[in-house]
Design a protein around this nucleic acid. Structure first.
Length: 507
RNA sequence: GAGCCGGUAGCUCAGCCGGUAGAGCAACGGCCUUUUAAGCCGUGGGUCGCGGGUUCGACUCCCGCCCGGCUCACCA
């Protein structure tokens, strides 16, 4: 541990962790320390003025900067020091602005202090007047500066930023400092989540928080994480979906509820999957899935306008148009369009379906259950085509254990999925509210499980009991927030919109 | 889990057909009062991801492992 100031006590304890630092890092660390040790007190460091966001200053005064007094704070991200003057850029979340110090103005002593103690990466507060340089850049002519925090470790390279994807994920703060795109993506995501809430709240939905630790992980087809509660002496699961708890709240009399939070699925990790991911689910009593189709169109439109300011965006080199109405196509129509075979074939000719799956290259087609086969075949033939916003309506019942039977067809349910840019972004249905039928559906899932489908849904007896007290007709929907953020940000990896994506621990 | 690509200074990257390690930025010492990746002179910094093998000699070739990326498989 070192002391940065001797006279006034320990101003800034720093653990040097000698063995922990690589050679080059330690060298830079010690270099800065040598210059600063004993001379610098940061214990009183704070802004004397309220600093303003960089963007606000720029928006207000860029047109006519003439000597407006401003006060700003930020991280020093570039520095060009000359003998008797220095230029640099201060960065905050909203942008960068140039600062200019000259000896004449701030005085010999302050200028000396600046040259001696201030490094790239430090947090600085400055007060001064705006002017425009020869080259036309809006700049703060600094009359007074305050060193607010010291950077002892070297920042990523200024020109290329931080490229190493592993470092960008493991040390996201460096990514955020160095790469504008990272800052933009996470600001965009925050805005997206905020607007999502605003839209739901203004439609009368209230936010609920239901258990993450659940005795039965049900409500979706996925494998859960298992954990153990010492005091209760019981195994618990991290939720794979909040669905069954939210519907209990509908039973309890909340007419419109939503939950925005993390779900956990013990599955592979790839470009579009993180083991913990954010989903919003919302449920409205007295609605059906047709109401949700309209509501979803409005929601996406609202988000696009508020977050992006446009409904047209680029994704993967193609233009995606988010203006409603979206295309609507029925599940079996889409399949028939692609394969020439109808509902009858897919639901009642298991061997034929198996053969088709095999021809399409579905792996282990011989071992899959009917439901899985159907799902796989749909993914293979239909999903790749769903780039522009598309509602796929009226799913087969055997894929949808929680959805209400279709009013016109016993073999279907009133369900849709919304696809954007080829990703399944939303899943919604008129909720099954008949406790006896729900029980039957869970039992069917148990059979699937016994037939080898590890992701078949778990029976939740308490949920059936809740339904037995009566749940009004209800429609519910889940939207994958990370995926939506990916699409809005134009990123092809979910890790670009998750601050700290799951990685293997570095040994 | 399989296939392919990658890991060299704190960061971004070179490093040939095997001969013992290089640049720019950052750091350190100087010069420099409108710079824009500022410039100029000088200095220090490397377990070449880890382990083994081949060889007189390995960053380089071979094998195994670790971490990451992409493609595929599973899921949203």
């Amino acid at each position: 541990m070192v002391r940065l100031a001797d006279e006034e006590g320990v101003e800034m304890p720093v653990y040097t962790a000698e063995e922990g630092l690589e050679q080059g890092k330690r060298y830079a660390f010690e270099g800065v320390l040598k210059r600063v040790e004993g001379k610098l007190s940061l214990v009183e460091a704070r802004l004397t003025d309220r600093g303003e966001p960089v963007r606000k200053v720029k928006e207000q005064f860029d047109y006519d900067p003439q000597h407006r007094p401003v006060s700003l704070a930020g991280r020093l991200v570039s520095l060009r020091a000359m003998g008797k003057a220095a230029f640099g850029h201060l960065q905050d979340l909203t942008g960068k602005i140039q600062v200019y110090l000259k000896k004449d103005l701030i005085g010999e002593e302050q200028f000396q202090l600046f040259k001696e103690l201030v490094d790239l990466g430090d947090f600085l507060g400055v007060r001064g007047k705006l002017f425009r340089t020869k080259t036309g850049e809006l700049t703060v002519e600094v009359e007074e500066f305050q060193l607010l925090s010291k950077s002892l470790l070297p920042l990523p390279e200024k020109w290329h930023g931080l490229r190493d994807t592993e470092l960008r994920y493991r040390q996201r703060y460096l990514d955020l400092i160095a790469n504008p795109r990272a800052r933009r993506n996470f600001a965009l995501r925050a805005k997206l989540v905020s607007e999502l809430r605003r839209f739901l709240e203004s439609a009368g939905f209230i936010e609920a928080e239901t258990p993450v630790l659940q005795p039965v992980a049900s409500g979706a087809n996925a494998r859960p994480f298992k954990t153990y509660h010492n005091f209760l002496e019981t195994e618990l699961y991290l939720r794979i979906a909040p669905e069954l708890y939210l519907k209990r709240l509908i039973v309890g009399g909340f007419p419109r509820v939503y939950e925005l939070g993390k779900n956990f699925r013990n599955e592979g990790v790839d470009r579009s999957h993180n083991p913990e991911f954010t989903m919003v689910e919302f449920y409205a009593a007295y609605w059906d899935y047709h109401d949700l189709v309209r509501f979803t169109e409005e929601l996406i439109l609202h988000l696009a306008e508020k977050v992006l300011g446009t409904t047209r965006l680029k994704y993967g080199g193609r233009e995606l148009d988010l203006s409603p109405p979206f295309r609507k196509v029925r599940y079996f129509e889409l399949l028939e369009e692609k394969t020439g075979k109808g509902k009858e074939f897919f639901l009642h000719d298991l061997e034929g379906l198996r053969k088709l799956a095999h021809e399409l290259g579905v792996k282990e087609a011989d071992r899959l259950t009917h439901a899985k086969l159907l799902d796989k075949v749909f993914e293979k033939v239909a999903e790749p085509e769903l780039f522009q916003p598309t509602f796929v309506l009226d799913f087969p019942k055997l894929l949808s254990p929680l959805a209400k039977t279709h009013r016109e067809d016993e073999e279907l349910v009133e369900r849709f999925e919304l696809y954007l840019a080829g990703y399944e972004v939303a899943n919604a249905y008129t909720e099954l509210n008949d406790p006896l039928e729900q029980k039957e559906r869970f039992l069917q899932q148990l059979k699937e499980r016994q037939a080898g489908d590890e992701e078949a849904m778990q029976m939740d007896e308490d949920f059936i009991t809740a339904l037995a007290y009566g749940m009004p007709p209800t429609a519910g929907e889940g939207i994958g927030v990370d995926r939506l953020a990916m699409i809005f940000a134009g990123e092809d990896s979910i890790r670009e919109v998750i601050l700290f994506p799951q990685l293997k621990p570095k040994k």
